[in-house]
Design a protein around this nucleic acid. Structure first.
Lengths: 347, 347
DNA sequence: CCCGCCGTAGAGAACGTTATACAAAACCTC
DNA sequence: GAGGTTTTGTATAACGTTCTCTACGGCGGG
């Protein structure tokens, strides 16, 4: 049996060296633009590389030095907020020599951990973890060996960098807005705490605290109600069903993610309630979803693109050793009012 | 200056071998469950690996054998249809030893090519390319050295496998549906052909042909109108604006992607047209977007999840050498009627 | 003119794994 | 039990890079 015509031999550094009539060490130096190469050598090697269409073998590089790969972990591609962050990362890294690889691990903590380990095992130069559900200890252990930026969690650390949003403030903005519209019965739909493996200050915890404080501040502490639900259409739907069929129905619902708000919307729709007129609804993250013509959801913008580019920049600083101590950047959220919130009992 | 406490030494195969009192070769055999290991050896090595918490170093593996990594290329994470495909891939590979890494390269052909090359350079075992915009020759060259499955393009090849949807049929389903509602002026919004580097049968081309044939079949050839636009909210919006303000306004618009349909919707909304009553609107892919309570978009389901899992299965077959010739799988689309399409001039 | 120095190039040892080739041991078969 | 076969484990040469260390040639200064 004649086997497939696979396996065209790769061009290696040795081929380039031979073709240029120099040593592999010299080629390697040019490749890493290391110290100790003359201009003529540069020239010679570069043209040899071009002629042979040489591309370094990343796996081999990984054995000794860097792989020029940045890994990004996220739980759920459907949350378009993450897409904003990714765009920021990509734009920042676009004309650097780094390649971004995304690991979409789902909500399950175990498979997230597996994915993070995979990235470390693949010798990635740096990791960006978006609100990881993995136990904190695991993340710290990984960050020990690979530069890491954690996005979302407020728990600071001197081992990894952090980029986060002042979620507490953001929750306050929404509550203030709703109260100014006359609402008093304001419920919050936030992610379940089960995913928090020793993270004391996940976005949802901070958000919830911000909500509770704001309610307190307005003298509405007794009206506060927090419903836990996954940040997905389905999670929002269930939460919406439960809240909107309760005996004392809230006049306004805010959620920690736009996608969940749309689930609530679906529930309201099914029950026969009009959003804005019968129940005000606010999301979080100001994703593209919120701006759809048929949606027009009031939401909180937390500048995902900027978060992404900031994270990427910080990570590269660390990878390249320009900075040797952890840093933390906090973004300020901004309220975006659209049609889904209205005066209480309004028509 | 005291440097960071980085670099905890990794546990290597040598450590495991020493700890178990055997040779590294033996450990390697166990690792790959190769032929020639006794049960007792298995046992001994496995427990040593467990005790030391050993994880193989993927970069080192890549030097000789496989990396157990599958790369997935997509242009745009915001297209939730791709999320369906990815879920399919993930579910299929979930409890295999393969890790999935996603490269989100954007629409630009050059950066897609760069991403594909990155994946090959990282010695990934197999590639799944979702409707790549890269020139066909480039894809074939890469497929030469790495097993590849192309999703979407109808161009068959004996070098890579293909998974695709009968898009021509799908377009026909929509046209038939709209005609049955009394529509005659039916416009199509499809992706621009610029991204086709020698692909003769991209999804958009096949879709367009299907649309034209169906219109012809109904004697509406003269009414056919195709508008090119990017499959994004913005692209759909521009197309919608242009079509809906034209002198002869279509009574129905179908798009090649749900996300573009929502852009059209936004345009209609701005112009003051009601979707369904004033203009019927149909999308494609039946993504989660189409099913939102406030959207309810008629769309064509092409079973993204199944496409993903099929592609993954086919790829693994190839990677592991169980199949040595290219294969092609075609899915049948199904129309999902929702509220966005109605009788012409209906109210 | 010899010594030390600097800038550049090359030799060669890693890195952690796979896989081939072989030695040793165990098991058959007559 | 001799001869053959099969099973089991080991030694070791790759794989394609990086990077340290050494060699060399030229040059300025004493």
């Amino acid at each position: 049996m004649e086997s497939a015509p696979q396996r065209k031999k790769r061009v290696t550094i040795t081929d380039v060296a031979r073709h240029a009539g120099v040593s592999t060490a010299a080629v390697s130096k040019v490749l890493r633009n290391a110290y100790g190469v003359s201009a003529s050598m540069q020239e010679r090697v570069r043209s040899a590389m071009a002629e042979l269409d040489y591309r370094p073998h990343a796996a081999a590089r990984g054995m000794r030095g860097r792989t020029y790969t940045i890994g990004v972990l996220l739980d759920n591609i459907r949350n378009t907020f993450f897409a904003d962050i990714l765009d920021g990362i990509r734009d920042e890294l676009h004309d650097s020599e780094y390649t971004v690889m995304i690991g979409a691990a789902g909500f399950d903590a175990a498979s997230q951990a597996k994915t993070i380990r995979s990235m470390v095992d693949r010798q990635m130069d740096g990791l960006i973890l978006i609100a990881p559900g993995t136990p904190r200890a695991e993340v710290l252990a990984m960050a020990q060996s690979t530069p890491t930026v954690v996005i979302g969690h407020h728990d600071a650390s001197d081992i990894h960098d952090s980029v986060l949003d002042a979620d507490g403030l953001g929750a306050g903005l929404v509550v203030d807005h709703l109260v100014s519209l006359g609402h008093r019965d304001i419920a919050l739909v936030s992610a379940p705490g089960t995913r928090t493996g020793k993270w004391a200050r996940t976005p949802e915890i901070v958000l919830t605290n911000g909500y509770l404080e704001a309610m307190e501040r307005h003298g509405l502490g007794a009206h506060a109600r927090v419903h836990k639900a996954a940040y997905s259409d389905e999670g929002g739907y269930k939460a919406g069903m439960s809240l909107l069929t309760a005996e004392r129905r809230p006049t306004a619902i805010m959620t920690g993610a736009d996608v969940a708000a749309l689930g609530v919307w679906r529930a309201a729709h099914e029950i026969g309630l009009r959003v804005s007129e019968d129940v005000s609804l606010a999301g979080y993250n100001n994703t593209a979803l919120a701006d759809l013509a048929t949606v027009q959801l009031t939401s909180v913008d937390q500048a995902g693109h900027t978060m992404g580019s900031t994270a990427a920049r910080m990570l590269v600083e660390r990878v390249e050793g320009h900075r040797d101590r952890a840093a933390q950047v906090t973004m300020t959220p901004r309220l975006v009012v659209r049609d889904s919130t209205g005066a209480v009992g309004g028509d």
